[in-house]
Design a protein around this nucleic acid. Structure first.
Length: 770
DNA sequence: GCAAGGTC
């Protein structure tokens, strides 16, 4: 017996129909419908039927540290038990198995998963792989006549993605969730695709908030043959330094001066009249992104649009809606499809008009793939009554887009008139649609015309009215859903099948609200936390790197283990930083800030000031309003900060104690410490042994940001030479000079103890080292 | 309860 395995039910049905010449019968195996003819069975999977996961004992978030997910083995288990069971049953009896999953990377992995399942119950039957670019008779028959082998390297590339996504996503999600004491469905989710997508929205929101508008002016005049007849609008322009045409005046004085001239004048003289013809080419075929964009324009969000398209596909009315392809395959005969569509009354006239064109040559986009054709209607045309309102609306959009890709270009007549007013130039642009071309069958684009009357060079026109508009530059707009899908596509984030789902997920997780999606406070905090501590997962760069690695795996240039191994090392480093900053991250993410955690109110914005730790490990007091407010104060790096009840008389801030075992000490008011540090002028005590000969660097006693002191080179950061000094006590620089190092001897005066003869800082450091 | 990717 021979077994054919395809990626989905619909494909299995088509393949069975083609290969059996429609003689295949249905049978049910383990509750799954399969197709049978002669000695052949054909079954469809449902995409991935196995799932990567951690071992069961790692499912308890409470008892397993998120960091341990970095190293634990990843297992696979059946996620579609019925289908796996049907495959087992059929595969165990098969003498030959043919993998016919989609012709793309994920299809190769799904095929390899089926191969593993087959091999578990049957270690002898040969397993072949067939690849075809469309589910049509010639393509499919061709592929089965000349079968190939599974590309295990390509499948391994897909598996690398699975493993890396699971490890990073699950471990970081658990870490952030637990660190912020979130419970239940309030978990804080991050991932390679969703977090950079969210960051796009947050970054744009930051841009909008930070936007500083500029004033500018525009000048308009309404011109007519007579003062009370028809008029048209002309706009002032000038040539800027680059000799480009500009309409915006950035200087109020100039704007007023030009406007006075125009306003005082009563006539304009026509200088030039330019007439031209512009071709307006029809749009490219629908891939998923183009479809979502068009559906968006008629009021559908990304996810609902895809849901309707998937329903239409299931009913057989349109081709597969998840595709990157923008080039119709050779086996699509547009004329034949037009004839079929013309038999359906609502489209008859438009289809006939297209069939009457001199030639029919479809447009094509830049992306051509091998798995599915661009979205187009099938030969099976539904009656309008058979569909719900939304379904018909989307179906009509797909039919009309197909029409548009076959239609002629539209032609516009453009008219440009330049006039002179007192030495100033004004222009008017008119446009008229002389041949509607594809617009006749695709009425979704604006074809508004701007009319300008016939004028000739040298004509004098009346200035009916003039206007000085004061305007301001505006911040960028938020991303709309379809723009976001396009941006994701250009960055390689997600796939045709997932982008709309990822956006939906951002809504479900309370990361965005409204439309266009606006990021919530939680989203800003999650993005800030991941930017600071797990930057790789917040950046689209991770995907770019993964794509490159997957290509290398597929080409045999590297291996799955190498790629996942170095990814794990990187994740380990991320966790080193995360563990150190766990408390700070928790505070950052927690919705309500506990007053007892705060040093006081930020003098700049009033938000609570909180002890934090940077990626580098260094501690500081930061404003909870970050990143909007960047106010900080120093903290020592040694020990954990503890907020005391005692308040500073000068600044009203709590004193801070640093808990560090026997080295525990009271740091005091961070603001006083900052002031004192700033007041301490660097005292030069000698030459830098590292760089004085070459660069003239000198050694000075310094107090650094954290409040600790050192002897360091004045050329820091170019020269990093430094020697330690004690934190506490007043430092006296004596006149005694060390014979070995030519530096003064130092004495430290501490409260409650006799002076500490520290001596030459270099000698002191040598002793300390030993 | 975690990701992203298939598909239903």
């Amino acid at each position: 017996m021979e077994l054919i395995v395809s990626e989905k039910y619909n494909a299995a049905e088509r393949i069975a129909g083609i290969l059996s010449k429609d003689s295949a019968t249905r049978e049910t195996v383990s509750g799954v419908t399969v197709f049978k003819w002669g000695g052949t069975y054909c079954m469809g999977l449902a995409g991935h039927v196995v799932k990567v996961d951690f071992p069961d004992e790692y499912n308890d978030w409470g008892s397993v540290s998120p960091a341990s997910l970095v190293d634990v083995e990843i297992t696979k288990r059946a996620s579609k038990p019925d289908i796996v069971s049907a495959l087992n049953t059929l595969a165990s009896e098969a003498d030959r198995v043919i993998i016919a999953t989609d012709y793309d990377r994920e299809g190769e992995l799904i095929g390899k998963e089926a191969y593993d399942l087959v091999r578990a119950v049957n270690d002898t039957a040969p397993v072949d792989r067939v690849r075809f670019s469309s589910l049509t008779g010639p393509e499919v028959r061709n592929a089965f006549e000349d079968p190939d082998e599974i590309d295990f390297d390509l499948a391994a590339a897909g598996e690398a993605r699975q493993r890396i996504d699971l490890r990073w996503g699950a471990s970081l999600t658990r870490f952030l969730t637990l660190a912020s004491n979130q419970r239940g469905d309030g978990f804080i989710s991050v991932g390679r695709v969703q977090t950079p997508t969210l960051k796009l929205l947050v970054d744009r929101e930051r841009e909008i908030e930070d936007f500083d508008p500029d004033d500018y002016w525009e000048i308009y005049a309404d011109l007519g043959q007579t003062l009370d007849g028809d008029s048209f609008e002309a706009q002032y322009f000038f040539l800027n330094d680059q000799e480009n045409e500009a309409e915006r005046l950035w200087d109020e004085e100039t704007a007023n001066a030009v406007y006075r001239d125009v306003d005082d004048a009563s006539e304009a003289t026509v200088e030039t009249v330019d007439e031209s013809t512009r071709n307006d080419n029809p749009p490219i075929p629908f891939n998923t992104t183009e479809f979502i964009k068009a559906a968006n324009a008629i009021g559908y969000d990304a996810k609902p649009a895809m849901n309707v398209a998937e329903d239409l596909y299931d009913d057989g009315y349109v081709t597969y809606p998840r595709t990157d392809n923008t080039v119709y395959p050779d086996d699509l005969d547009p004329r034949e499809l037009l004839e079929t569509l013309s038999e359906a009354s609502p489209f008859e006239a438009d289809a006939e008009a297209l069939l009457d064109q001199e030639s029919i040559s479809p447009t094509a986009g830049e992306t051509e793939t091998t798995d599915h054709p661009p979205i187009h209607p099938t030969e099976d045309v539904p009656k309008k009554k058979a569909l719900k309102g939304r379904e018909w609306e989307i179906y009509e959009l797909i039919v009309r887009r197909f029409f548009a890709t076959l239609a002629d270009a539209a032609t516009w007549r453009k008219l440009r008139v330049d006039v002179d007013v007192e030495g100033h130039s004004l222009k008017a642009n008119g446009s008229r649609l002389v041949d509607p071309g594809y617009h006749a069958v695709y009425p979704y684009y604006d074809t508004g015309e701007t009319t300008i009357p016939a004028v000739a060079e040298g004509d004098a026109l009346q200035i009916v009215e003039s206007r000085l508009d004061e305007k301001q530059t505006r911040p960028p707009n938020r991303y709309g859903q379809s723009q976001l899908v396009e941006k994701m596509e250009s960055l390689g984030l997600g796939t045709k099948s997932t982008r709309h789902n990822t956006i939906e997920k951002l809504y479900d997780r309370d990361y965005v609200t409204g439309n266009p999606p606006e990021p919530t406070d939680l989203a800003r905090k999650v993005v800030s936390a991941t930017e600071e501590y797990g930057a790789h997962v917040a950046s689209a760069e991770m995907t770019a790197q993964l794509e490159a690695d997957m290509t290398a795996i597929a080409d045999g240039g590297t291996t799955l283990d190498d790629v996942t191994g170095s990814s794990r090392e990187m994740l380990e480093d991320v966790f080193d930083d995360l563990q150190r900053a766990r408390d700070e991250i928790g505070e950052l993410l927690r919705a309500e800030i506990d007053e007892s955690d705060s040093v006081g109110d930020c003098p700049e914005c009033g938000e609570p000031l909180l002890p934090r730790q940077a990626n580098s490990g260094s501690r500081f007091v930061g404003c909870n309003g970050y990143p909007d407010c960047e106010f900080t104060l120093p903290l020592p790096n040694k020990g954990r900060p503890h907020i005391l009840d005692e308040l500073c008389d000068d600044h009203g801030l709590h004193h801070v104690k640093m808990i560090a075992g026997s080295k525990t000490f009271v740091f005091g008011c961070p603001r006083c410490q900052q002031r004192d540090a700033a007041d301490t002028d660097d005292r030069v005590i000698g030459d830098c042994p590292e760089c004085h000969a070459r660069e003239g660097g000198e050694l000075a006693i310094k107090r650094v940001h954290s409040g600790s002191r050192l002897v360091g080179c004045t050329r820091y950061p170019d020269c990093e030479y430094s020697l330690p000094l004690p934190r506490e006590g007043e430092i006296e620089v004596t006149d005694d000079v060390c014979g070995d190092h030519d530096l003064p001897e130092v004495v430290v005066h501490q409260e409650d103890s006799s002076p500490w003869q520290l001596g030459c800082p270099i000698c002191n450091y040598e002793r300390y080292k030993n």
